[in-house]
Protein backbone atom coordinates (compact mmCIF):
# COMPACT_ATOMS: atom_id res chain seq x y z
CA UNK A 1 0.00 0.00 0.00
CA UNK A 2 2.61 2.50 1.09
CA UNK A 3 4.74 1.52 -1.88
CA UNK A 4 1.90 2.18 -4.22
CA UNK A 5 0.95 5.58 -2.84
CA UNK A 6 4.55 6.70 -2.64
CA UNK A 7 5.19 5.67 -6.22
CA UNK A 8 2.11 7.45 -7.41
CA UNK A 9 2.69 10.63 -5.48
CA UNK A 10 6.38 11.07 -6.24
CA UNK A 11 5.92 9.95 -9.84
CA UNK A 12 3.17 12.47 -10.31
CA UNK A 13 5.20 15.15 -8.60
CA UNK A 14 8.15 14.46 -10.86
CA UNK A 15 6.05 14.43 -13.97
CA UNK A 16 4.17 17.56 -13.10
CA UNK A 17 7.30 19.53 -12.31
CA UNK A 18 9.09 18.33 -15.41
CA UNK A 19 6.16 19.21 -17.63
CA UNK A 20 5.61 22.52 -15.89
CA UNK A 21 9.22 23.50 -16.32
CA UNK A 22 9.31 22.42 -19.90
CA UNK A 23 6.27 24.49 -20.67
CA UNK A 24 7.65 27.43 -18.73
CA UNK A 25 10.98 27.21 -20.50
CA UNK A 26 9.15 27.26 -23.78
CA UNK A 27 6.94 30.10 -22.75
CA UNK A 28 9.65 32.29 -21.25
CA UNK A 29 12.28 31.44 -23.84
CA UNK A 30 15.04 34.05 -24.33
CA UNK A 31 17.89 33.88 -26.82
CA UNK A 32 21.35 33.71 -25.31
CA UNK A 33 24.97 33.62 -26.29
CA UNK A 34 25.58 30.12 -27.59
CA UNK A 35 28.83 29.83 -25.70
CA UNK A 36 26.99 30.51 -22.47
CA UNK A 37 25.03 27.29 -22.69
CA UNK A 38 28.17 25.39 -23.64
CA UNK A 39 30.09 26.77 -20.70
CA UNK A 40 27.24 26.21 -18.29
CA UNK A 41 27.11 22.62 -19.51
CA UNK A 42 30.81 22.14 -18.80
CA UNK A 43 30.67 23.69 -15.37
CA UNK A 44 29.88 21.37 -12.48
CA UNK A 45 26.52 23.01 -11.93
CA UNK A 46 26.99 22.84 -8.20
CA UNK A 47 26.39 26.58 -7.91
CA UNK A 48 28.53 26.51 -4.82
CA UNK A 49 29.70 30.10 -5.10
CA UNK A 50 33.27 29.16 -4.22
CA UNK A 51 34.56 31.00 -7.30
CA UNK A 52 33.16 34.27 -5.98
CA UNK A 53 30.57 34.49 -8.74
CA UNK A 54 26.96 34.02 -7.82
CA UNK A 55 26.48 30.59 -9.30
CA UNK A 56 27.78 28.75 -12.33
CA UNK A 57 25.78 30.80 -14.75
CA UNK A 58 27.16 34.04 -13.36
CA UNK A 59 30.63 32.55 -13.63
CA UNK A 60 29.98 31.68 -17.25
CA UNK A 61 28.81 35.20 -17.98
CA UNK A 62 31.90 36.64 -16.41
CA UNK A 63 34.07 34.19 -18.30
CA UNK A 64 32.58 35.33 -21.58
CA UNK A 65 33.15 38.93 -20.58
CA UNK A 66 36.74 37.99 -19.81
CA UNK A 67 36.52 38.95 -16.15
CA UNK A 68 37.63 35.56 -14.84
CA UNK A 69 40.14 32.98 -15.98
CA UNK A 70 39.23 29.55 -17.31
CA UNK A 71 40.86 28.09 -14.21
CA UNK A 72 38.51 30.09 -11.97
CA UNK A 73 36.15 27.22 -11.23
CA UNK A 74 37.49 25.66 -8.06
CA UNK A 75 35.00 22.85 -7.84
CA UNK A 76 35.64 21.69 -11.39
CA UNK A 77 39.40 21.43 -11.14
CA UNK A 78 41.79 20.91 -14.01
CA UNK A 79 39.44 19.00 -16.33
CA UNK A 80 36.88 21.76 -16.41
CA UNK A 81 39.61 24.34 -16.91
CA UNK A 82 40.89 22.47 -19.95
CA UNK A 83 37.44 22.13 -21.45
CA UNK A 84 36.69 25.79 -20.83
CA UNK A 85 39.94 26.75 -22.49
CA UNK A 86 38.84 24.80 -25.54
CA UNK A 87 35.46 26.53 -25.67
CA UNK A 88 36.92 29.97 -25.12
CA UNK A 89 39.70 29.36 -27.62
CA UNK A 90 42.41 30.35 -25.17
CA UNK A 91 45.89 29.40 -26.31
CA UNK A 92 49.26 29.36 -24.69
CA UNK A 93 51.61 31.81 -26.40
CA UNK A 94 54.44 29.96 -28.07
CA UNK A 95 58.04 30.75 -27.24
CA UNK A 96 58.95 31.90 -30.77
CA UNK A 97 56.88 35.02 -30.49
CA UNK A 98 57.41 35.47 -26.80
CA UNK A 99 57.58 39.07 -25.75
CA UNK A 100 58.84 40.29 -22.44
CA UNK A 101 59.10 43.49 -20.45
CA UNK A 102 62.45 45.23 -19.96
CA UNK A 103 63.50 48.34 -18.08
CA UNK A 104 65.46 51.06 -19.84
CA UNK A 105 67.61 52.07 -16.92
CA UNK A 106 70.71 50.43 -15.57
CA UNK A 107 71.54 52.65 -12.62
CA UNK A 108 71.43 50.67 -9.44
CA UNK A 109 70.22 52.42 -6.31
CA UNK A 110 73.76 53.11 -5.14
CA UNK A 111 74.77 54.61 -8.50
CA UNK A 112 72.03 57.22 -8.60
CA UNK A 113 72.95 60.75 -7.69
CA UNK A 114 70.46 62.85 -5.83
CA UNK A 115 69.87 66.54 -5.63
CA UNK A 116 67.48 66.38 -2.69
CA UNK A 117 66.35 63.86 -0.08
CA UNK A 118 62.81 62.76 -0.78
CA UNK A 119 60.50 61.73 1.99
CA UNK A 120 56.90 60.83 1.48
CA UNK A 121 54.79 58.08 0.01
CA UNK A 122 57.11 55.37 -1.17
CA UNK A 123 55.80 54.78 -4.65
CA UNK A 124 57.32 55.87 -7.95
CA UNK A 125 54.14 57.67 -8.90
CA UNK A 126 54.23 59.76 -5.73
CA UNK A 127 57.95 60.47 -5.87
CA UNK A 128 57.78 61.50 -9.50
CA UNK A 129 55.38 64.27 -8.54
CA UNK A 130 57.77 65.80 -6.00
CA UNK A 131 60.64 67.07 -8.13
CA UNK A 132 61.22 63.61 -9.56
CA UNK A 133 61.92 62.13 -6.17
CA UNK A 134 65.03 64.29 -5.87
CA UNK A 135 66.98 62.32 -8.45
CA UNK A 136 69.54 64.16 -10.56
CA UNK A 137 68.51 62.11 -13.57
CA UNK A 138 65.09 63.09 -14.76
CA UNK A 139 64.63 59.91 -16.74
CA UNK A 140 65.91 57.00 -14.68
CA UNK A 141 64.28 54.44 -12.49
CA UNK A 142 62.97 55.78 -9.18
CA UNK A 143 63.24 52.37 -7.58
CA UNK A 144 60.09 52.25 -5.44
CA UNK A 145 58.76 49.27 -7.35
CA UNK A 146 55.37 50.35 -8.70
CA UNK A 147 55.97 47.80 -11.45
CA UNK A 148 56.73 45.13 -8.89
CA UNK A 149 53.45 45.85 -7.10
CA UNK A 150 51.24 45.59 -10.15
CA UNK A 151 52.78 42.47 -11.68
CA UNK A 152 50.05 39.84 -11.52
CA UNK A 153 52.44 37.01 -12.33
CA UNK A 154 55.06 37.58 -9.68
CA UNK A 155 57.62 38.04 -12.45
CA UNK A 156 59.33 41.14 -11.07
CA UNK A 157 61.59 41.44 -8.08
CA UNK A 158 63.41 44.53 -6.92
CA UNK A 159 67.17 44.32 -6.68
CA UNK A 160 69.15 47.32 -5.44
CA UNK A 161 66.44 49.68 -6.59
CA UNK A 162 66.00 48.20 -10.06
CA UNK A 163 63.31 45.82 -11.22
CA UNK A 164 64.59 42.44 -12.34
CA UNK A 165 62.28 40.54 -14.66
CA UNK A 166 61.82 36.79 -14.57
CA UNK A 167 61.30 36.27 -18.27
CA UNK A 168 59.89 32.81 -17.78
CA UNK A 169 57.01 34.19 -15.81
CA UNK A 170 56.53 37.38 -17.80
CA UNK A 171 53.52 37.30 -20.13
CA UNK A 172 54.01 40.79 -21.57
CA UNK A 173 50.68 41.86 -20.14
CA UNK A 174 51.86 45.45 -20.01
CA UNK A 175 50.71 46.24 -16.47
CA UNK A 176 54.22 47.36 -15.48
CA UNK A 177 54.53 49.52 -18.59
CA UNK A 178 51.38 51.36 -17.60
CA UNK A 179 52.40 51.61 -13.95
CA UNK A 180 55.80 53.21 -14.52
CA UNK A 181 55.45 56.99 -14.16
CA UNK A 182 58.71 57.57 -16.04
CA UNK A 183 57.65 55.32 -18.90
CA UNK A 184 60.93 53.43 -18.98
CA UNK A 185 59.56 49.91 -19.21
CA UNK A 186 58.75 48.50 -22.62
CA UNK A 187 57.83 45.20 -24.20
CA UNK A 188 60.37 43.72 -26.62
CA UNK A 189 60.71 40.41 -28.50
CA UNK A 190 62.41 38.00 -26.13
CA UNK A 191 64.59 36.56 -28.90
CA UNK A 192 66.24 39.91 -29.59
CA UNK A 193 67.98 39.84 -26.25
CA UNK A 194 69.46 43.35 -26.33
CA UNK A 195 68.27 46.45 -24.55
CA UNK A 196 69.54 50.00 -24.06
CA UNK A 197 69.47 50.35 -20.31
CA UNK A 198 69.06 54.10 -20.30
CA UNK A 199 66.31 56.56 -21.15
CA UNK A 200 68.11 59.85 -20.63
CA UNK A 201 67.54 62.43 -23.31
CA UNK A 202 69.85 64.88 -21.57
CA UNK A 203 72.94 65.91 -23.48
CA UNK A 204 75.89 63.58 -23.17
CA UNK A 205 77.64 65.94 -20.79
CA UNK A 206 74.63 66.27 -18.53
CA UNK A 207 74.07 62.52 -18.48
CA UNK A 208 77.71 61.90 -17.68
CA UNK A 209 77.36 64.24 -14.72
CA UNK A 210 74.23 62.52 -13.45
CA UNK A 211 74.95 58.86 -13.93
CA UNK A 212 77.90 56.50 -14.45
CA UNK A 213 75.99 54.08 -16.66
CA UNK A 214 73.88 56.42 -18.77
CA UNK A 215 73.84 56.72 -22.55
CA UNK A 216 76.06 59.66 -23.49
CA UNK A 217 75.01 59.61 -27.13
CA UNK A 218 78.57 58.86 -28.33
CA UNK A 219 77.18 57.00 -31.36
CA UNK A 220 79.71 54.18 -31.11
CA UNK A 221 76.91 51.62 -31.19
CA UNK A 222 75.50 53.25 -34.28
CA UNK A 223 78.85 52.76 -35.98
CA UNK A 224 79.11 49.13 -34.88
CA UNK A 225 75.63 48.06 -35.92
CA UNK A 226 73.92 50.80 -37.89
CA UNK A 227 71.02 48.57 -38.81
CA UNK A 228 70.04 48.09 -35.21
CA UNK A 229 71.06 51.19 -33.29
CA UNK A 230 70.16 54.75 -33.92
CA UNK A 231 70.93 57.71 -31.70
CA UNK A 232 67.98 60.04 -31.56
CA UNK A 233 67.59 63.00 -29.26
CA UNK A 234 70.72 62.11 -27.26
CA UNK A 235 69.69 58.51 -26.74
CA UNK A 236 70.50 55.23 -28.46
CA UNK A 237 67.41 53.33 -29.47
CA UNK A 238 67.09 49.82 -30.91
CA UNK A 239 65.00 48.98 -33.92
CA UNK A 240 63.28 45.84 -32.71
CA UNK A 241 61.69 45.20 -36.09
CA UNK A 242 65.08 44.03 -37.36
CA UNK A 243 65.57 40.41 -36.55
CA UNK A 244 68.56 38.15 -36.97
CA UNK A 245 71.09 40.94 -36.52
CA UNK A 246 73.44 40.63 -33.60
CA UNK A 247 74.13 43.69 -31.52
CA UNK A 248 77.10 41.96 -29.90
CA UNK A 249 79.93 44.30 -30.97
CA UNK A 250 77.98 47.33 -29.84
CA UNK A 251 77.55 45.77 -26.44
CA UNK A 252 81.31 45.28 -26.25
CA UNK A 253 82.22 48.78 -27.33
CA UNK A 254 79.67 50.82 -25.39
CA UNK A 255 81.81 53.04 -23.14
CA UNK A 256 79.30 53.27 -20.32
CA UNK A 257 78.09 49.67 -20.67
CA UNK A 258 74.51 50.79 -20.97
CA UNK A 259 73.68 48.30 -23.73
CA UNK A 260 73.08 44.93 -22.16
CA UNK A 261 71.76 41.42 -22.74
CA UNK A 262 68.45 40.84 -21.03
CA UNK A 263 68.96 37.23 -19.99
CA UNK A 264 72.04 37.78 -17.89
Amino acid sequence: MIIATSIIVLGLLGFVFAALLALAADYFKIEEDLRLAAIVAILPGANCGACGAAGCRAFAERLIKGEVAVSGCLAGGQDVANQLAAVMGVEQPTDVHKRVAVVHCGAKGSQRKIKANYSGVKTCQAAEMIAGGGLMCGYGCLGYGDCYCVCPFDAIRMSDGLPVFDHNKCTACGKCVAACPRKIISIIPYAFNVVVACSSRDTGAATRKNCPVGCIACKICEKQAPAVFKVEDNLAVIDYTRTGIDGGPAIEKCPTKCIIRIDQ
Binding site: A46, N47, C48, G49, A54, G55, C56, R57, A58, E61
Partner: peptide, 8 residues
Amino acid sequence: IYLPLITT
Protein backbone atom coordinates in the same frame (compact mmCIF):
# COMPACT_ATOMS: atom_id res chain seq x y z
CA ILE B 1 21.94 35.77 -11.04
CA TYR B 2 21.70 34.76 -7.40
CA LEU B 3 18.77 32.47 -7.95
CA PRO B 4 20.67 29.38 -9.16
CA LEU B 5 23.03 29.81 -6.24
CA ILE B 6 20.10 29.53 -3.93
CA THR B 7 18.89 26.11 -5.05
CA THR B 8 21.81 24.43 -3.42
